[in-house]
Amino acid sequence: MTTLNLYLVRHGQTYYNIFNKMQGWSNSPLTQQGIDGAKQIAKRLAGTKFAGAFCSDTGRAETTAQIILDHNHASDLTAPHTAPYFREEFYGYYEGTDITSSWYLAAGPHGLKSLTDIVEKYSFDTAKDFLKEADPFHMAEDHDDYWQRVDQGFALIANDPSLHDGDNVLVISHGNTLLSLMDRYAPGKYDLSKRPENGSLTRLKLVDGQIEVVSYNE
């Protein structure tokens, strides 16, 4: 049995986070507060020896990962392994648009008004499906598209020959991804009306490729 300890950190605050814009595969830079927040979590993790580090190929994730690794004196890692598998949910036509308006358009045809309404009645997976339905180009990821991609990211980690039983692995993640992981692997355990903070820590165990949730939004 091989167990890997995953340290999932949400990227630092970005300008799109401030402007309440949908930020999936699109990207905006870290704010100064975002940089400072990344440095704070870097200090918390400075003594944790990481055998691997992974993040999406978006600037906000790469910058956050690099700040953490630059402050980590317990590891020999100099740069993260970037891959598209670790990206946030793809919002298709709604990338870069107002969050509240976008989810209203997705929820409206189903008699609802917001992402919160969808999740309370259904799930985060259903929210993905509703957004793809509302996308005039139908390019947004539904839950099948999303998990097929994200699962490849966890498989990439699980099958990395440089990682061994008991190793710690840094993973820079995203807000809706962390919520989706909790909804899928720890249903009902956490209050998911509270979004994970930028720079927060969520811990998972990857046991023979299977995910177990240890903590959320520390």
Rank of each mutant, 00 (worst) to 15 (best):
residue 147 W to K: 03
residue 32 Q to L: 10
residue 172 I to Q: 10
residue 188 G to N: 12
residue 134 A to G: 02
residue 65 A to M: 07
residue 115 L to N: 08
residue 183 D to I: 12
residue 70 D to I: 09
residue 147 W to G: 07
residue 28 S to D: 05
residue 148 Q to A: 14
residue 212 E to M: 06
residue 216 Y to M: 01
residue 178 L to G: 09
residue 132 K to F: 00
residue 197 E to H: 08
residue 32 Q to S: 08
residue 173 S to H: 13
residue 23 Q to N: 02
residue 20 N to M: 11
residue 208 D to G: 03
residue 141 E to F: 03
residue 158 A to L: 01
residue 125 D to G: 09
residue 159 N to E: 12
residue 97 T to D: 08
residue 52 G to S: 11
residue 35 I to L: 12
residue 130 F to N: 01
residue 217 N to K: 11
residue 43 K to T: 15
residue 158 A to F: 04
residue 70 D to M: 03
residue 204 L to E: 06
residue 148 Q to D: 14
residue 85 Y to G: 00
residue 78 T to W: 01
residue 110 H to V: 05
residue 64 T to L: 02
residue 51 A to S: 14
residue 109 P to M: 04
residue 205 K to W: 02
residue 138 H to P: 03
residue 204 L to R: 04
residue 120 E to M: 02
residue 141 E to G: 04
residue 55 C to T: 15
residue 163 L to G: 06
residue 78 T to R: 10
residue 36 D to F: 00
residue 182 M to R: 10
residue 30 L to D: 02
residue 162 S to V: 13
residue 122 Y to I: 07
residue 185 Y to V: 11
residue 66 Q to W: 05
residue 164 H to A: 09
residue 164 H to L: 12
residue 65 A to T: 02
residue 211 I to H: 03
residue 22 M to Y: 06
residue 150 V to I: 15
residue 24 G to P: 10
residue 29 P to F: 01
residue 154 F to D: 12
residue 27 N to C: 01
residue 162 S to A: 13
residue 23 Q to G: 02
residue 136 P to A: 01
residue 69 L to M: 09
residue 160 D to F: 02
residue 107 A to W: 04
residue 134 A to M: 05
residue 84 P to C: 07
residue 207 V to F: 00
residue 144 D to Q: 13
residue 42 A to G: 04
residue 93 Y to E: 08
residue 81 H to L: 11
residue 60 R to Q: 09
residue 15 Y to D: 07
residue 47 G to F: 01
residue 43 K to S: 11
residue 144 D to L: 15
residue 125 D to K: 10
residue 95 E to R: 13
residue 139 M to K: 14
residue 34 G to Q: 01
residue 107 A to R: 07
